[in-house]
């Protein structure tokens, strides 16, 4: 039992401690409205982080995810302009954009041999430019109610939990699907093997390009989904996605994912995203201003890498 605790990923313990701290400081958090609101706000970053984990486990980074969130929100509002009947095809179109962006990212890495950090940085700048050009620099159009349903709607009058945000359902469904693909399929095992040692994986028969394309598409599609949720509860703005890719990477790293690939689980990454969100909530309750959040995010990112390295050295003997 003690031994199992020792091998447990510390992110879960940290998350528990943060929840306790928040509950003590703000009893509202223990009410269904309190914690459901927390999970609702954590949903986009959790989805983004798990998408990012696919790319990290493959041995890369996807810096374009945040810009794609922005493009999703801006693009949807312009295409829809309040027309509720268009919601479904716009969502379909945006998911298709996600597939294209992910595929291009992966092929630039695979075929042109550009390091993913550069390829996706280029994509991030490009998408940012597209969003700005398209919107003319200021948010235009607006999102109809049925589009905002996913991010904003609460299912009420339920037993025990009383309310359930649709965003939380989306998070659970998407994360469960991505957990399954990562940990219960041949694809997931190929992906992790490729991130561990691409040459050995290739010589064992793993199709590297195909594996990489799927990983980047998972990240981009998760960014589009996160964008739909954020558009739902935050509305239209041109900086909605700024910095989200870094939060996603931070969340994965807090969860113990190894940068440059080969090690990282979906469960711990979700916990990492919740830790990040809980940290923000705590700082909020304590009354710290927004810039302090960034300082804390930076510090815990570095601490997470240090702690992970220390644990590995100790267990490696």
């Amino acid at each position: 039992m003690i031994n199992r605790l020792k091998h447990m990923n510390p992110v879960f313990l940290v998350l528990l401690l943060l929840f306790v701290a928040i509950a003590i400081l703000s009893p509202y958090f223990l009410q269904p409205a309190g914690y459901m609101n927390f999970f609702k706000r954590a949903a986009p970053i959790a989805i983004l982080a798990v998408g990012q984990l696919y790319v990290i486990n493959s041995g890369g980074f996807d810096l374009s995810a945040g810009a794609l969130v922005t493009l999703t929100v801006i693009g949807s509002s312009i295409l829809l302009d309040g027309d509720a009947s268009a919601t479904w095809w716009v969502i379909t179109a945006m998911l298709a954009v996600g597939v294209v962006v992910g595929t291009v990212n992966a092929l630039v890495v695979s075929w042109l041999k550009v390091p993913s950090i550069i390829a996706t940085l280029g994509m991030m700048i490009t998408l940012g430019g597209v969003a700005l050009t398209w919107s003319g620099g200021a948010p235009r159009g607006y999102l109809p109610e049925n589009f905002r349903f996913f991010g904003r709607y609460l299912i009420k009058d339920l037993p025990v939990i009383k309310i359930l945000p649709v965003a939380v359902i989306v998070m659970v469904v998407i994360c469960a699907a991505m957990w399954w693909l990562m940990h219960r399929t041949n694809y997931g095992k190929r992906l992790v093997a490729m991130g561990d040692n691409p040459k050995a994986a290739m010589l064992a028969g793993v199709p590297l390009t195909q594996t990489r394309v799927v990983a980047f598409v998972m990240s981009s599609v998760s960014a589009v989904i996160a964008g739909i949720l954020l558009g739902g509860f935050a509305g239209v703005s041109t900086d909605v996605g700024v910095g989200l890719e870094l939060q996603a990477i931070t969340a994965a790293v807090i969860g113990g994912a190894q940068l440059l690939g080969g090690r990282g689980t979906v469960g711990a990454t979700i916990a990492g995203a919740l830790v990040l969100q809980a940290m923000f909530t705590l700082l909020n309750i304590l009354g710290f201003p927004k810039p302090i959040r960034d300082v804390v995010q930076g510090l815990i990112l570095i601490s997470a890498v240090v702690i992970a390295g220390y644990r590995r050295r100790r267990s490696g003997g």
Partner: peptide
């Protein structure tokens, strides 16, 4: 070798590489 993975994952790698992507590993 994929060094960070288990002995089993190393042994199964080619079987998984040539089986349906969504099949159980």
């Amino acid at each position: 070798l994929v060094l960070m993975q288990s002995v089993r994952d190393n042994g199964m790698l080619s079987a998984r590489a040539f089986s349906p992507a969504l099949g159980h590993p």
